[in-house]
């Protein structure tokens, strides 16, 4: 019987340290603020389009920027990409975004309809 073998299906007991507790509280607050902000941004985006007064030339880039901001908040606050030790996840995710952007752009523009 080796005592150093920890049992991976035993319930974890105890509370986080005071410091961790405070950290979690801070995190929670940040997340609620981001949530409110995201709701706000979403509403703005919908309003921009629904109001029908704002010309598309402005509205489309505007709502796209709003979408990007929201996604960044999801990734960094909700999914904790801002925490330390996330170097590789950041690298791979942003590489994914890079390839994704190229893909979307070509499929939109370079399909032989308009020649560039």
């Amino acid at each position: 019987m080796d005592p150093h073998v920890t049992d991976p299906s035993a319930p974890l007991k105890g509370k986080p340290s005071k410091k961790a507790e405070r950290q979690l509280a801070r995190e929670g607050k940040q997340q609620i603020i981001s949530f409110v902000f995201m709701i706000f941004l979403t509403s703005i985006a919908f309003l921009t389009v629904a109001s029908d007064t704002i010309p598309n030339r402005f509205a489309i880039p505007f709502i796209l920027i709003i979408a990007a901001v929201q996604v960044i908040m999801q990734l960094y606050y909700f999914m904790h990409l801002n925490e330390r030790g996330n170097g590789w996840t950041n690298i791979m995710l942003w590489t994914g975004f890079f390839v994704a952007a190229l893909t979307v752009a070509t499929l939109m523009l370079l399909i032989g309809v308009t020649k560039y």
Partner: peptide, 18 residues
């Protein structure tokens, strides 16, 4: 390697600048 794939499609007609 991710930015060159259209060299397989030169004759498709995506346009001279592309």
């Amino acid at each position: 390697g991710f930015m060159v794939w259209a060299h397989h499609m030169f004759t498709v007609g995506i346009g001279p600048v592309a």
